[in-house]
Simulated scan of single mutants.
Amino acid sequence: MLLGFNLLLWSTHVTEEDFPILEKIKATGYDGVELPIFEGEPEQYRAVGQALKDNGLRATAVCIMPNADADCTSSDPAKRQAGLDHIKWAIDCMQAAGGETLCGPFHQPLGIFTGEPPTDEERQNVAETHKQAAAYAAQAGVTLAVEPLNRFECYVYNTVADAVDLVKQVDAPNYGILYDTFHANIEEKDPVGVIAPNVASIAHVHFSENDRGTPGKGHVPWAATMKALKSSGYDGWCTIEAFGRALPDLAAATMVWRDLSASPEEVYQFGHDFLRDQWAKA
């Protein structure tokens, strides 16, 4: 297992001001960090990549669709193209930082609903757009991992089965799904049971507690989750994703209305030790 930490706990756009955090993440024992790619240009991310190298850290990244005008599900070709262009931009930024895997719900803008279930046309639109994105990512040596989210954030892909169907449609060796323990806890009948049958499609994992706080302080079945991943042969990136109230805009977007952990230090220190121990015992 490669253990990473998502920097969204501190920043939505990593700059030189955030570089001291990298030293702490490395000292704790992490293999890498996950960069939020929500703004900026590739040139800016080269400096981030150098800071990662200086600290002996590897990187993955996460992005989302920025607004309603960039939507891979849309019947409007211009909106699908905008969605594709945004993914390509994120790939360029991550490549500049030396990243390996780009993950996230980069199929539709968050919090926008039709009031109806997803249609075959919407899912086909995503597949066709993401097939082009996967081809572009392959040229950069990047893996894409699309994330199914809970029903309160999106509606086109909510479950692992939904996302695995998309992976089959895209049919690219560098395209898979992101399995997230938080979303699985909400949407899956059996959050652990879906891992083994679909492990071949899992390209990235988010370790996130049921309340988005410190892993190991809630009710996610960590021992069973680790055993399912490890026994199925998954040995890739597992990244802690936790949120707090330090960034007001992000706190509002993620619906964080109270402190979910005692401190950021608890999240990355206790989370690291707990998850390493759980993996070793699995």
Rank of each mutant, 00 (worst) to 15 (best):
V167P: 00
R212N: 04
I25A: 05
A145Y: 11
I177H: 05
A200F: 09
V164W: 01
C154Y: 14
A140K: 02
E265H: 04
D162S: 00
G83D: 08
K88F: 08
P264N: 08
D171G: 13
E265G: 03
A137V: 01
E23F: 15
N67Q: 11
V48E: 12
W237L: 11
D71L: 09
V167Q: 00
H219K: 12
A282I: 08
H272K: 13
V146M: 14
A96C: 08
S11M: 09
A145R: 12
A51G: 06
N210H: 15
L57I: 02
R258G: 00
C154Q: 14
S208F: 04
A280R: 15
S11D: 15
G193T: 06
Q95M: 15
G29E: 01
A127V: 13
V267E: 08
G111W: 15
A140S: 03
I240V: 04
V167G: 00
N174Q: 01
C72I: 13
Y30N: 02
A96H: 03
A70M: 03
E266C: 03
A135G: 15
T143L: 12
T28H: 06
G4M: 04
I25T: 12
L22H: 02
C72E: 15
A282K: 07
Q124D: 12
R123W: 07
A253Q: 11
A282N: 04
A224G: 09
Q269L: 13
M226F: 08
T114D: 07
V194E: 14
Q139V: 12
M226R: 13
R80P: 03
W222S: 04
G115C: 00
A133V: 02
H272Y: 11
M1P: 01
A203M: 06
P117I: 11
M1W: 05
A172T: 09
L22T: 03
D277A: 10
N210S: 13
I195F: 04
D277R: 13
K230M: 08
N125W: 05
A82Y: 04
T60H: 00
G40N: 05
E128D: 10
A97L: 14
W222K: 01
A223P: 02
